[in-house]
């Protein structure tokens, strides 16, 4: 298990390193997705399955897509540019790292020893009880927190009507 952890950690580290060193936005995002997936694996290894799932769904899914949208919005999406972006150097790195992760996941599934790393009880239940028990106010606050995000993005993101014209 520990070996798995260290390999994943190495993957996370390397992917993150590439994020901050890569010159192309899309490539960097790609690495970031890899890093997030790796991180979710680590969460899993630490016994936080629920967090691992959310990491992939929300982070790797929603938030990264948002980033990509913006990147697309900002840059003119010329095919020519798309072609220069799609070089082996762009996809080989992420692919290798992703493959490593895939292997680990495969091993984990094959090993089938899910409970070894978890803490007794099914965690999701405990998380849910805590969320809607003592942390109920936290949840409400978090929902409120999304509101300024929404309003802010709405107000700031749109162009003036006369500019659009």
């Amino acid at each position: 298990m520990e070996v798995l952890f260290y390999i994943t950690a190495a993957v996370t580290f390397l992917a993150t390193l590439r994020v901050i060193t890569h010159v192309h936005a899309v490539h960097a995002l790609l690495y970031l997705v890899v890093a997030l997936i790796a991180l979710s694996l680590i969460f899993y290894l630490l016994g936080a399955e629920f967090a691992a799932a959310l990491e992939i769904i929300i982070y790797g899914g929603a938030i990264m897509v948002l980033f990509i949208f913006v990147v697309m919005l900002l840059g003119p999406l010329a095919v020519e540019q798309e072609r220069t972006w799609l070089t082996p150097s762009a996809w080989i790195g992420p692919s290798i790292l992703a493959l490593v992760l895939l292997g680990e996941v495969g091993y984990l599934i094959a090993a089938g020893d899910h409970t070894a790393l978890t803490v007794g009880e099914p965690r999701q239940k405990a998380v849910s009880i805590a969320l809607f028990g003592p942390y109920i106010i936290g949840v409400e606050l978090a929902s409120m927190l999304l509101l300024p995000g929404l309003i802010g993005a709405y107000h700031l993101g749109r162009r003036l009507s006369k500019e659009a014209r």
Partner: peptide, 15 residues
């Protein structure tokens, strides 16, 4: 949650 909310505002500003 924070990350989501923040990224949306941030991207609005970036635009």
């Amino acid at each position: 949650t924070l990350a989501a909310a923040e990224v949306s505002v941030a991207l609005g500003i970036v635009l």
